[in-house]
Design a protein around this nucleic acid. Structure first.
Lengths: 226, 226
DNA sequence: ACATGTTTTGATTAATTGGTCAATGAATTT
DNA sequence: AAATTCATTGACCAATTAATCAAAACATGT
């Protein structure tokens, strides 16, 4: 395969690795605008339903310019996925620094619920990708994803070994935490319908978060102390 | 709006309400083939990414015949959604007949996990629809969905009132059960990736099911007796 | 000011796709 | 068996869409 070169001939071999100057700043701003718009459109319509024209309109950038920046619809989509993956990695850092399950898993649930609240589109794009075969994930960051998950499972299994929580299956616990937190992003519309067509209020978000956290921590025998 | 009439002039005013005869039987078989194919294609590609041609090929039916049977892509999609909704309604009957949370919620988790295992595509189509705005659900069965959920919440709240389980928020408990069971269908590909590119075996499914059930039941203070 | 490389966009294209139609085949009724 | 209604399909159309291109606008270093 012979991909066409995309974007400017930026010299990334300088000392800082950063590109500075007016032009580079503008480029960064434009890229960010495209990311936000693309995330929204991909979340609302899926990869197949999304159109470059919609992304162009929403970002206020001419359609050919999208191709200038990202080459193709698929490459743009991959870039969006990668951004999301990086955000998720950061959210799990709480678990590594924690010494108890209540702190680690509770904090992770908090972080994930916060992402669901503030970045629902990101979660939806990911969910969409996984549902439709996860082929981009396979291609791009399968290994990183696997390693990352294995490391988190080890942390949980250590807590079990240390008797800090009940001997639950760490893998399926992780899946349950992912599912029950991301649900609030991915199924936000359903939750709104069941909430009398009103998005969850701040108070309701707090209640939901506490419900998930308490149920999970009690379920693994690592109650919070109030 | 003036929708074209679709399908044959079946006389449904006879005593049984059923249509019999060779033709009606063939029609039923054809409809079923279309449903299966459509569910698969919609699950794999989403509404936007699905094409009538793909559904035609997969079902072995000429494309114009799809339109003869269902009118349009959107009407076919709605019919698929409705079929899924009916299946879900049936799964919740366990809860109504149960006298204890362990029996009711445990049985519901079993039923939902079984659906995720046997009908992953159905779950994916629903998830997809909700993620992309749930507009068809709004149009078609918003009220039915709301009523159905309210009734299940009442059942749980009665158990709480009777002291059969801890005072958890019934609504968010229901969401957690939905999320953590449907996850095994919607995120099946992700689970496979993390399982060394191997779909869950029967034993692993059993373990996953038990993990979810034990964690939830312990979390709501309604342990199973072994 | 000039030359050079970068960014932007209007116009266009080739390919795809939902939907239609007229003609044919098959079942059912009279 | 003739007439009627239902089912099926090849060929086609109008609309959409990802991607391209050439030319214009812009920024940067000399």
């Amino acid at each position: 395969m012979n991909f066409p070169r995309v974007g400017p001939m930026i010299d990334e071999s300088n000392s800082t690795g950063k590109v500075t100057g007016r032009r580079a700043a503008l480029r960064h701003v434009t890229e960010e605008k495209i990311f936000i718009a693309a995330e929204t459109v991909f979340a609302q319509a899926g990869f197949g339903g999304a159109t470059m024209q919609l992304i162009a309109n929403l970002s206020g950038i001419a359609k050919p310019n999208l191709h200038y920046y990202f080459g193709s619809k698929e490459l743009l989509y991959r870039a969006v996925l990668q951004r999301i993956f990086r955000m998720w990695l950061r959210a799990a850092e709480v678990m590594d620094d924690a010494s108890t399950p209540a702190e680690g898993i509770g904090g992770y649930i908090d972080a994930k619920m916060e992402i669901s609240r503030l970045n629902p589109n990101a979660s939806k794009v990911w969910a969409n990708e996984v549902m439709h075969g996860a082929s981009m994930i396979q291609d791009c960051f399968k290994d990183a994803f696997f390693e990352w998950t294995s490391a988190r499972i080890s942390v949980i299994e250590r807590w079990v070994a240390e008797g800090k929580m009940l001997p639950v299956n760490a893998r399926y616990l992780l899946y349950l935490v992912w599912a029950s937190t991301q649900h609030y992003a991915d199924f936000g519309h359903q939750i709104t319908i069941l909430n009398h067509d009103t998005p969850l209020s701040d108070v309701e978000w707090e209640t939901a978060k506490r419900s998930v956290k308490e149920l999970v921590l009690r379920g693994i025998g690592a109650e919070l102390n109030y």
